[in-house]
Nucleic acid binder design. Structure first.
Length: 271
DNA sequence: CTCCAGGCCATTT
DNA sequence: AAATGGCATGGA
């Protein structure tokens, strides 16, 4: 058990933010499986109890929760952009952080996400993990399944995915696995040192089923490219209904991805 | 029944 | 370059 204070973090908001699909919430607690491990975190205000050692928190969850990015600064900067909708969104979404998730998990998850809704994405992802992942234990009791490792999916065929509800995305998922296991893993290391435009171009041209939107999600959530700004149906609705069809200035800010998360959460929640 | 969901691809203008 | 139809699935 390790306890610490963290500002600008609300577990429930993150769980419902649409960047991760496997967090399980239970009151003020969440259960998270990532990097083959399970952790429970409970929140009281800005005090968080991690059901693990301090060492594990420092080694894994600290970076996962993006503790070293100053969200006070990011939110303050939004205030200076003089955009009332953005202000309202930041106010509503303060507590959302951009997680540092495993790249492969993000890639697969957002291929599943295309033309789909969040409850169904969660359902499909969970079924996928149950079929191809490994049991993850927490003090002898099973907590759930790991996200499948790429090696466990070698030579995956669309028919192997039958019954999971993937629909036409099955072949896209297989192509992503193929790419990752045949040079993609090494390419990810190079991607981390590239500007956004290069990253997007390579991802789109390497994987059938990855277009602008999914690429931007992979960049933002999998490569922590904070200026990547995914435009999905909710963002299009926002641009049309709230900005008269013109992209607001914050979408090209260096923290556009974070502001996009706040506004996505805000727009989708105010339905 | 139709419409929609964190879209993309292939084809046609 | 830009617009359009098709695509799987399941909930509203």
């Amino acid at each position: 058990m390790y306890e610490t204070r963290i500002s600008c973090l609300d577990l429930k908001s993150v769980a419902d933010s649409g960047q991760c699909f496997r967090w399980k919430t239970e009151g003020c607690k969440v259960g998270i499986i990532a990097f083959g491990r399970y952790v429970e975190i409970s929140q009281r205000g800005d005090v968080f109890s991690f059901d693990c050692t301090r060492q594990e928190y420092e080694d894994i969850w600290r970076n996962y929760l993006d503790i070293d990015t100053d969200y006070e600064l990011v939110c303050g900067r939004a205030d200076g952009l003089n955009d009332s909708l953005l202000r309202a969104a930041v106010n509503a979404g303060r507590g959302i952080r951009i997680l540092n998730q495993d790249f492969f998990e993000v890639l697969i998850s957002f291929i599943i996400s295309q033309n789909n809704n969040i409850p169904r994405i969660k359902k499909i992802t969970e079924a996928f993990c149950e079929r191809f992942g490994k049991p993850v234990y927490a003090s002898k009791k099973m907590a759930g399944f790991s996200f499948p490792a790429p090696e466990d999916l070698r030579n995956l065929k669309p028919q192997d995915l039958k019954g999971l509800g993937l629909g036409y995305r099955d072949k896209y998922l297989c192509d992503a696995v193929r790419w990752y296991l045949s040079g993609g893993e090494d390419m990810v290391l190079e991607l981390r040192n590239m500007p956004a435009g290069e990253q997007r171009r390579i991802l789109k041209q390497s994987i059938c089923g990855v277009g602008d939107k999914v690429a931007n999600c992979v960049m933002l959530f999998g490569l922590h490219k904070l200026d990547a700004c995914p435009i999905d149906v909710w963002m299009k609705k926002l641009i049309k209904e709230d900005y008269g069809g013109v992209c607001p200035a914050w979408m090209t800010d260096k923290y556009a991805g974070i502001y996009q998360q706040y506004t996505f959460y805000y727009k989708r929640g105010a339905r």
